[in-house]
Design a protein around this nucleic acid. Sequence first.
DNA 1: CACGAGACCTGTTCGC
DNA 2: TGCGAACAGGTCTCGT
Length: 272
Amino acid sequence: MPELPEVESIRNRLRSGTESHPSLLGNLFLGVEIRWLRSIAYPTAQEFQSQVVGQTILELNRRGKYLIFHLSDSYLIVHLRMSGDISVISKGDLVRQHDRIVFHLNDGLRLVFNDARKFGRIWLVHDPLQVTGKLGPEPFSVELTNEVFYSRLTAVKRQIKPLLLDQTFLAGLGNIYTDEALHLAQIHPLCLSNQIDSLQSSRLLACIREVLEEGIRRQGASIDWVYRGGDFQNYFRVYKRTGQPCPTCGTLILRIMVGQRGTHYCPQCQKL
DNA sequence: CACGAGACCTGTTCGC
DNA sequence: TGCGAACAGGTCTCGT
């Protein structure tokens, strides 16, 4: 499910609180129910359970698509993969079918990791780099200048779409925002990275930032039964719009497979 | 090195 | 209506 904007929206919600629950900052873990063993990536379920209990949530951060809970003695790191979601429920609420991990907090609150497809993973580590160490730059990092981005693009010879999906190249883009950014930048998804000139490269970086910002502003995209809350799905230019007119030129949007991912683009605006 | 296929999983939608 | 195939926001590993 979630790409950078959805994870950022979840982080903001948990950190600031909503009308139905307070901020999680300062809250304490009283217990953990592990309903699906493999959701815990590290350490063992037993160690995870005993180590997390008694710790306080000091801060909530995001790195790429990872949600990072800074606890009093370690870091709880969550990756939602395809169908994961994490939310707070209160006393009367029942545990649902796909709730995999249930954290019991103060005041009868529970923090629930729900994941229909069971791809999501949770780590408890002392050094977050153990999990996020191989990630590429954050898209909004000031260190990521046009020059740096261009040199990273041209350092390899890869199809641009799979390259943008590669989290060691750039952290946070997924299938939706990649298709949207390439359309905005007018670059064909199969274009080779070393054939992009420095002008196109700068435009691409600006477009990536623009679609991510719009996604965050709209609190992410809600599709199917998975993530809820955002409305960016109503503003897609190409994603899941096969056969519908391109918002720029009216040409019908095509769908092809690129690196085994459904890929949507405008054959008029995005020429190879 | 770059790419494709398969695995990990369950649920929904599509096509006949 | 029914049923199997295709497809889904992600990432890892293996073979070529």
